[in-house]
Design a binder for these strands. Structure first.
Length: 579
RNA sequence: GCGCCCGUAGCUCAGCGGAUAGAGCAAUUGACUACGGAUCAAUAGGCCGGGGGUUCAAAUCCCUCCGGGCGCACCA
């Protein structure tokens, strides 16, 4: 392989064409290019009397190998067969049309029928200025405009601290929320507090036992944190030790609940995770004085009206098998007590009543057996289980292959993780993997707080854009001129191509519910920036004069900083200007 | 037994049906009298768990087997 040469194949076309439009209008975005390609394709289809295709069918990709151009399309190969033409001939026909698009430098047909497109340097480079001008808004899109979404995640029991599993959902859920909003969705994030049921009494009894120096009761909660809660409670209410169980358990329960919940909220706040709504399960059981009924009672009536509720063996059931569950589920037990499922039904309806047509649940893999039941709830409520509810299942985190459990004593808490790694590194290392990928962490590596986390690579790139800008300012390089046709170095073409993709990355992350794509993108962008930095100077060396090339590169530098900051922001990670 | 998820470099993991499968870490070797070396360049490392199928094209979709995780309550 010969050494890479610094001469870029692009030519500054705007200087060769006498009546070139102003540089501003030369900007070719991927969206515009797709739209024009669509018109060309449909024109060809129309001439043949074939049915037109939509923008979704016209794929325009950035090839992995840059020898294949700035953009590539496989549309000819997809359409050739039904039309009875060879893919290469069809591609050649499309290519002819694409050559007429403003800002396109050249078009080739390659391999079995790929169409490879190379943009003018000016058309690709105009993006740098546009990004700087858009600032924080660059990357936002309207793919999800008009959608009203309720996103529930974490929802940990208030009977203990958040552990690493919750931490993963917190990082992913919060980033997903940011990505959905950046794509135009109207969104509320919710934390469902399971503060009803036996577990709360077990929690209270555990605290009380710790206070009295007794062993943890059966079904109780072991752990040092119980001891700590007990000591804090004792300071608040020393008389607790004098009371009978009947009075002491509820008091210990309520005080412990309050302390534990506020600790959870503070942990999440420190973790840059914000919930719009903290929803208490108790509200669903509270009896409305006007009607004499609770939200749970009412929910059962409403489901019954839809025809999916029946009575059997003294209990009340929901026919969840109508919606793919493997057995029907009890919603009210024979002894008159509601199941957990009943509160879930009421909670689901509450979300609908509050105006959220679309509900997303982010659950751990240990709850995947619950998916059919939740879908059935949507169906039983008269909604569409395929559209109105979406349950995302995240795989669990393991440590060196060992399963985490309280019993094994290897539970790792969010607060410890934050202390070891720092918020940025922790959020990033949990946010850069898809939810359905099982994740194995090395506890020693976590505690070591090393710089091998990719977050530092990305943050350093951002800090470097600021350092370059500071130096540029001192050397008299400013943004008073911009000539995109000067951005001809191959690392500049690569950098611009990646910058152009940012809006699509956000959109894709939102539509696929995969916020980790933003992190992977940020790493790619940081790499392209570091390589550019090594090849292209923004400030002149020594006595060299400041030229428009330096000024234009400053725009590109600042554009990269903007996109890195925007990307890190979507991940809830800070973008430091110095490190 | 039934169901869901996952098997990709030594390790941790990316990879919307496209061209020569990638990154970080670990290993080896280079690069500052150049805007911050927390960087860059290069080398090495792969039957993408096995086998069938669909397709012009499969790590990706379908079937099957093997291996791992998780779940199968009138608990919460």
């Amino acid at each position: 392989m010969p050494p890479r040469c610094c001469v870029h194949p692009r030519r500054p076309v705007s200087r060769l064409v006498p009546d070139a439009p102003p540089i501003e209008s030369m900007l070719v975005t991927p969206a515009e290019l797709s739209a024009q390609l669509l018109a060309i394709v449909n024109g060809a289809l129309e001439r043949r009397g074939a049915t037109p295709v939509t923008i979704e069918d016209v794929s325009l990709d950035r090839p992995k190998n840059r020898d294949h151009g700035d953009w590539a399309s496989n549309i000819a190969m997809k359409l050739a067969k039904p039309l009875g033409i060879s893919p290469r001939d069809l591609a050649a026909e499309f290519a002819e049309g694409i050559r007429g698009i403003d800002g396109v430098a050249s078009v080739d047909v390659a391999g079995p029928g790929f169409i490879n497109i190379i943009l003018d340097a000016a058309a690709a480079g105009a993006l740098a200025k546009s990004i700087v001008e858009q600032g924080a808004a660059f990357g936002r899109n309207d793919a999800l405009a008009g959608q009203t979404i309720n996103l529930e995640f974490v929802s940990a029991n208030p009977t203990g601290p958040l552990h690493i599993g919750h931490t993963r959902w917190a990082a992913l859920g919060d980033s997903l929320a940011r990505v959905l909003r950046a794509s135009g969705a109207t969104l509320a994030t919710e934390f469902y507090i399971n503060d009803a049921g036996n577990q709360m009494d077990n929690f209270g009894a555990s605290i009380l036992a710790a206070l009295r120096g007794e062993p943890t009761p059966e079904n109780g909660y072991p752990g040092e944190y119980i001891e700590e809660l007990a000591q804090r409670i004792l300071v608040l209410r020393p008389e607790l030790l004098e009371l009978d169980d009947a009075d002491a358990v509820p008091l210990a329960r309520e005080l412990g609940y309050e302390l534990q919940l506020s600790e959870i909220r503070e942990s999440l706040e420190r973790f840059n995770v914000h919930f719009d709504v903290w929803f208490s399960e108790r509200e669903l059981h509270a009896v409305n004085e006007a009607t004499g009924e609770s939200a749970v009672d009412e929910a059962i009536h409403r489901l019954r009206k839809q025809g999916h509720v029946f009575d059997d063996d003294g209990a009340v059931w929901v026919r969840t098998t109508d919606f793919g569950d493997d057995k029907d589920r009890v919603i009210r037990r024979g002894n008159g007590v509601f199941t957990y499922f009943a509160a879930d039904a009421a909670y689901y309806l509450s979300k609908s009543d509050r105006g959220y047509a679309h509900k997303i649940y982010l659950l751990g893999a240990d709850h995947h057996g619950y998916v059919h039941r939740l879908k059935a709830l949507a169906g039983a409520a008269g909604d569409d289980p395929e559209k109105d509810i979406e349950v995302l299942i995240g795989q669990l985190v393991s440590i060196n292959g060992a399963r985490l459990s309280k019993r094994a004593g290897n539970i790792i808490e969010l607060n410890d993780l934050q202390a070891w790694l720092g918020v940025d590194a922790l959020r990033y290392s949990l946010g850069r993997y898809p939810a359905d990928s099982p994740l194995t962490l090395d506890p020693e590596l976590l505690q070591r707080r090393t710089n091998d986390n990719p977050v530092f690579y990305v943050q350093y790139a951002h800090a470097r854009t600021h350092s370059v800008a500071r130096n540029a300012g001192e050397s008299g390089v400013d943004r008073s001129a911009f000539d995109a046709s000067l951005l001809t170095h191959e690392t500049e073409g690569a950098l611009l191509g990646i910058l152009a993709e940012f809006p699509r990355v956000i959109r894709q992350a939102a539509e696929l519910r995969e916020p980790h794509r933003v992190a992977r993108y940020a790493e790619e962008l940081a790499g392209a920036y570091h390589r550019w930095y090594d090849n292209c100077r923004v400030t002149p060396l020594g006595d060299e004069p400041v030229t428009d090339l330096h000024r234009t590169r400053l725009w590109l530098n600042d554009a990269t900083g903007t996109v890195l900051r925007n990307a890190l922001g979507l991940l809830g990670v800070s973008a430091p200007e110095r490190m």
